[in-house]
Write a protein that binds this DNA or RNA. Sequence first.
DNA 1: GCCCTGCATGGTC
DNA 2: AGACCATGCAGGG
Length: 788
Amino acid sequence: MLLDPGGVECNGCAKEHHMSSTRPWSQSFSATLSERLRDISTNNWNQLAGSGPVPWKQAPSLYNSVSSSNLQPGVASLVELTHKLGKIYGNERLPAFSLGKKNENFPGISNWNTKLASQEIMLVNGAMNEDQPSSCLNICQQSSSVKEDSSPQPFALPVPYASPNERNGQTGGNQLQQTPPAPLGKQYSGTVHLSLDTSGETQVRNGRPRVDARGRSQLLPRYWPRCTDQELQQISIDSNSVITPLFQKTLSASDAGRIGRLVLPKKCAEAYFPPISQPEGLPLKILDAKGKEWIFQFRFWPNNNSRMYVLEGVTPCIQSMQLQAGDTVTFSRLEPEGKLVMGFRKASTATQSDQDNEANKTGNVHSTIGEVEMADPSSWSKVDKSGYIAKEALGSKSSISRKRKSSILGSKSKRLKIENEDLIELKITWQEAQGLLRPPPDHVPSIVVIEGFEFEEYEDAPVLGKPTIFTTSNEGEKIQWAQCENCQKWRKLPASAILPSKWTCSDNSWDPERSSCSVAQELTAEELENLLPSCNSVISKKMKATKQETDNVDAMEGLDTLANLAILGEDESLPTSTQVTTKHPRHRPGCSCIVCIQPPSGKGPKHKQTCTCTVCSTVKRRFLTLQQKREKKQTEKAETIRKKQQPPPPGQSSEIVIEDDSLPCSNAGDSSPNPNKDGNGGSDDDPNRIKSSTLPFKGQIDLNIQPEREEELSPQSDSGGMKALLDGTERHLRQLSILNSGDADSSGSQSKGVGDETREQKLSNGVVLGNNSHNSDRELVQPLTMNV
DNA sequence: GCCCTGCATGGTC
DNA sequence: AGACCATGCAGGG
């Protein structure tokens, strides 16, 4: 056992020290601070730093015990300590906000601040800074001098210490007031780890400070915890604790592989995990909600004059959670217990809301509660090679066995996986997404010509509008109906009206008499009932008339991203202009999307009815799927609209999930669509089995997608999805442009020409291939209602 | 020959 | 250009 003050202690002695020390840290810190300091500064240091199993996460309780009654401000050693702290302040990170500010915001945690002369000092982590080759302390302090450091510090958000009422409203990262990267703010709001050695210099490892000030404030967005999982919230509620999302990590192939090493983001590891100075690191004890206790070895490798942090021995845990590459593990912390909560999200069809719902139904959770504390060496020694130990520690909670639906992502698709993760947060058809999109105000599209086709381009992101219903009055006037978000009454509006996503009667500037929720609805219940089916029937008729089905399923992946991004764009923390572009994606050489592999219309060999090429078989299979789903949808839509038309409540926009059974795209996220369900008897592995005779109709298909997307997430597929996304955006904007011109049926516009041309790529097998998704423009004039 | 460990490499941001 | 990190791979058991 390497000792911070230097030298080594034999393993047996170290264990003995630990075993003989029955006092929890909170109790040990019941000794006066002076005593503790003496302990720390003298020969007992090894017990603090060298014995290993120090529950560093119990820092709050340690501090409480110190601050409540045991501080002896007059102790000389303590004064010296504070002076040293003052010296090193210039080198180390300062607490992000002042004591005064903290108290103002969090009166309930005033005991976290203990004035000590001019500074507040808090001992944490049991002085477990292994980094220090000489006597050193991990000291968390709040200093009045810190007030100078009042610059905006995103990490200063005191999320974990919000009041219970505030916490109750937390359903996601944003509700947690986590303007990313807020999670780290927890670290600063409560504690600041200072390394203090006898020279007063900050500890340097691998040639540089262990944690530089900027590093903590620049956690990459990919590691921002997207939300506090519902199950974690449940844990929080159950334990009367505050859940503090720390960071998340999308599992790479290596992470999820058999090697059992989970690479930790450096900044996250250094910010939230115990400091380690030796590559061997520390064993961390972890408990999960099912009662299992896990121990991982938290360690690092020197790497390029830096460090690479890993958790070793994670394979059993990963397997237990049935996690695979592309899934996400989230690290949160329960306060004040200091327990680490390790939740997870599946990357595939099981969206967060899905899991939330399921968790709510069953009361079960898919989380791991981790006590980030040094594992007992004695128990650690009993751990098997993998570093795994399982004990029933929390009482058994059965967990839901959710079969993973997604495939393992390619090893090179790390960043794409992250985007895929974003994709699954919203299930919506592209038609529905189109119905919600609005062009940015006061934006005139520019016309570009791509491969002979003209496209309108918008530089800025579209915005989400409210789903409405378009009808024609008896006088032939085009009107639209919008439902108030508050009173659910339907109001008649001009067809040209573009509504925000959250629209209420008070926003009804077109009809002042009905600009209040108290005013009766213009429509009778019967009329309304007729209105809704009529909307559907209009669409149905159009579709029948043209016999052109649009493949919702395939474009969904991209468009749900669009919608998702647009929704996220409403979040102040995510500027929309940088999230979404309506630029038409130029297909690049080497692109393998279905458009690029398909010869342009009129060129190349024609496909025969019996053609079983990838394109044709995919087209056929999707049409079958779509047809079935559309039939189902149409029969349910009227009722569904009435029941579920309410827009999502504020603050939950990022977790919108459309019920699968109400959408024609419910299989889109299923990595293994049932071929039998499609009625074609084929399989995804061999789509060529599909016989052309099983395709009884012509249709219009968005080919600007990646057919493999359904079966396997891949970089190419993602690319295809994004193409569909962007194409869909553009199409809708163009459509809206027509709408705004006041003549949706105009045939003289450029857009119309584009649509006519692009939708007429016909295969000889009878399938009309709508290039670049520029089809069904007319249908899109009627935004579809989104069921939320 | 397999597995584990630790380091190196190279892609990405 | 530098940092980060996913992953390859050499060497040892």
